[in-house]
Design a protein around this nucleic acid. Structure first.
Lengths: 258, 258
DNA sequence: CGGGCCCTTGAATTCTCTCAAACAATGTGG
DNA sequence: CCACATTGTTTGAGAGAATTCAAGGGCCCG
């Protein structure tokens, strides 16, 4: 069903063992992902200091803590979130292969959010302290890092618009379509279906709605056959979903990764 | 009351006239803003191609349009926003002196949001096409650009948490305190007061609340003497406001600008 | 003086939340 | 194999939050 995803869940090696040389990085095979120039590939190869496998449910980075590492997600799903003292949780964004994680911690000394694995994940590990070498010697890669940060910003803008101004149903439809489109770009979908590891609790916390209400809204969409979400499988009617969300995904542009 | 602010409103020169050499940039005099190294200053001086004055109410950048320019705000207030087809508006963030505007448009070909002036503004203009030179020749500045993007991301995370999880009153208190702290860092405050150019309409659109409800929430805070907001003047009781928001501003760290 | 913009208040309606309970699926230990 | 705990989903009911509609008042400017 999904090459990347299934690759993860079968991995069960000790952390930081280095299994995948950068030349064979599975991300490079994803259409829509920018390829490295030879010198860049060489640098990134050296920049990478190891691999990290994280089991579903693991916290990879913690809000308020310091981090000496940067990660690129190779496979699996995760999410970024922040907590309120009251215990309420806001899921800020879902993390998918190709995403750069922990950049914030490299530019200020405290992480502003936590990162948790939703499925088993495989991540490449980079040293924060060597980010400067990247900026000094590889302006193209530095540009890519900025590109990634700016794209995250754009996504957050859209989420903010969604949570602030869309109705509950529009919000839910938007998020489903958004995630489906992102997964599709990475070859994780199968036609109109997708292995979708979020629970409704995650979904509610991403929408800023209560679990109960989220459930009702989703069932309403399901009854109208706009979506079907059962047993971790999501099937969508793209057109109806776009209509319900009052939103269309951005057309894909070639995107970089590190 | 506020040096930067009052400097703006008295400016009324033709657009793109170059008045301020970078060595005398008022931003450089703000404590808490990083100073340029000599070679950086020289580059930035050449990178800057002009100045733009924008009257209050002017749209500086439009969602969906292409932009060949990047701007650094020298003085004045503005805001970034996105619109829904329904006409509903989400204000994503308020823009203050030192903020870099339009980076998104330099990395993808369409702006994802609009930028509008809240007061008269003065901005430095840079050419998108020359951003590459900055990355190639001045990694320190490139790093700064990334830093600015990451900081915006952090702010958006916080807003998302706020809109998604905080109560209306907490949200309002948070936003007031957040803006006060940012203005204070720039020397725009006077003790506990601040010239505050937003209307309640802006404030409501930033909070994701209706105008009517925003008004009631603000009056509740005012009745408890946590704030006073009259005639564009905001006065806060910092401690009470922080308590009402369940939030404290980040301690200030030295921040860059371009 | 009139029009436009902004703030304020009341009232009714709608949306969303919390509380509560039940059900399904899964896994564990006895 | 069954009893039991755990996690995730579903539904009902009542309370609370926020919205919309409506209208009035203050202020500034042409």
């Amino acid at each position: 069903m999904n090459r990347l995803f299934s690759a993860v869940v079968t991995l069960s090696r000790p952390p930081s063992a280095r299994q995948i040389p950068c030349e064979k990085c599975p991300l490079g095979r994803i259409e829509g992902f920018r390829k490295f120039a030879p010198d860049e590939l060489e640098f990134v190869s050296g920049f990478k200091t190891g691999e990290l496998t994280a089991e579903a449910g693991t916290t990879i980075l913690s809000e308020g803590s310091h981090s000496d590492h940067l990660y690129t997600v190779v496979s699996g799903w995760g999410f970024r979130h922040k907590l309120l003292e009251s215990g309420r949780r806001q899921i800020l964004n879902i993390i998918l292969p190709g995403d750069l994680v922990g950049l914030q911690g490299s530019l200020s000394d405290k992480m502003g959010h936590s990162v948790e694995a939703l499925t088993d994940m495989l991540l490449c590990v980079f040293e924060r302290s060597r980010l400067w070498e990247l900026y000094r010697g590889y302006p193209g890669l530095a540009f890519d890092v900025t590109w990634l940060a700016a794209r995250e910003e754009r996504i957050l803008d859209e989420h903010l618009l969604s949570i602030g101004q869309r109705t509950a149903e529009q919000r839910a439809a938007y998020l489903l379509l958004f995630l489906f489109a992102r997964a599709e770009l990475r070859g994780m979908t199968n036609g109109r279906t997708l292995v979708f590891p979020l629970t409704q609790r995650h979904f509610a916390d991403a929408l800023g709605l209560s679990l109960v209400h989220t459930n009702r809204v989703l069932n309403r969409l399901a009854r109208r056959k706009v979506i079907r979400w059962e047993n971790r499988i999501l099937r969508i009617d793209r057109k109806e979903l776009a209509k319900a969300a009052d939103w269309d995904p951005d057309p894909d542009t070639l995107r970089p990764y590190i």
